[in-house]
Nucleic acid binder design. Structure first.
Lengths: 207, 207
DNA sequence: CACTTTCCGTACGGTACCGTATGGACCTCG
DNA sequence: CGAGGTCCATACGGTACCGTACGGAAAGTG
């Protein structure tokens, strides 16, 4: 795509001399990770972006308008990611399950984890955020279930293991595992095996 | 311990006509569950207790003093609970594990769950809260491990399953499971079996 | 070169909160 | 009954934030 020369000139000199909604939303996501939704405040973001809130109220109606943009941006990114991570790879389904677990249970992707947690904290007190998180979770559970099914796991057990998988990764991201004694890395590997690989029939009978 | 007659009289007539630190801390815990740590504000608690903040600053040095009290109160209660729940009952260890899972993964004890989540949100941004949560988690993991050991599970697997247990219950409490399709109750039961009962050897070799 | 649009700075009123100072009601005890 | 301690109300200054009004610089447009 072609850009106007004037635009190019501005972008070369100092990036974001002109802000747009996306830049504000990105700053909001950063702050969300660090301080939660109550921490994303207009004047604070303005200071972080080295502008005043005069800019903010040009791009957004009010704070709620920004928060709605944050929700949509996050939702789209998460759904796109989960679809990409679970795109059918014949024979590689188990490795894909392992990767899905690692995305949120290792110390890489720390910022993504913090946003995830802040999002759920937000969802606990705001119906709009709750609806978004619920939609993202539904996508994730569906996609993970497909992987298990492709591994030969029966339907109900595939649903159950998907649920355990996500409950575990979210839960473990809330525990400060580094502080515990024992070989955390090995424990996490074992748990990963337990969730993804050991396809023993579950106790409750399949009707 | 004996109480002054005058104190007794006051407590009989209308409870809490005189407030004490415990009453403020209890109100703080209630608000913590609903709005997180940023929501526990002096003047808001005062309104909830139908007094003014003049009372608050009599019992507490400042807001941080209250928050420290909240941390200590919560810590003591959680440690006392986990010890009680895992007190040795010969032959009943498996049932005890089931109960530990149910405490935080069923819709009963909703307030306890909300406080738990708010506590971890708090711990993510405050070192003092992080230390408390870490201490409580260490107790829980130790006690749960003892139960698994009593069930005949070998040491390392007992540690691993304890970790999975708590990561799962905390994680599932962050997901709005009621909104998902499928038989959630049965899925939770199956997961409980998977965590607590199926003592298949784990993949990684025991050295 | 006017003229408009885009984008941001400044200034303002209003709200919610923190912590302090001070006085007063009530009880207790000599 | 007076003196002192306990517990709370009131009033105040200060900070941080929201949203609005308005002005102005810079760039595009005819």
């Amino acid at each position: 795509m072609d850009l106007e020369p004037s635009i190019l000139r501005r972008m070369e000199k100092t990036p974001r001399l002109q802000l747009d909604r996306a830049a504000w939303i990105q700053a909001a996501l950063d702050t969300l990770a660090d301080e939660g939704v109550t921490g994303v405040r207009v004047e604070v973001l303005a200071k972080r972006l080295h502008v005043t809130k005069g800019s903010f109220y040009w791009h957004f109606k009010d704070r709620q308008d920004l928060l709605s943009g944050v929700l949509e941006t996050w939702k789209d990114g998460r759904i796109r990611d989960i679809i990409k991570q679970t795109r059918p790879e014949a024979g590689g389904e188990e490795a894909q399950i392992f990767r899905v677990i690692d995305v949120y249970s290792t110390s890489r992707n720390r910022k993504g984890i913090l946003i995830e947690l802040a999002m759920r904290e937000w969802a606990r007190r705001d119906p709009a955020a709750a609806a978004i998180v619920e939609e993202v979770d539904a996508w994730r559970l569906r996609c993970a279930r497909e992987l298990f099914l492709a591994c030969g796991v029966p339907m109900h057990e595939a649903s159950t293991r998907s649920m355990l998988l996500y409950a575990y990764v979210f839960g473990v991201s809330m525990m400060n595992c580094e502080k515990f004694d024992g070989d955390i890395t090995r424990m996490k590997d074992d748990i990963r095996e337990l969730i993804a690989r050991s396809h023993t029939p579950l106790a409750s009978p399949q009707p």
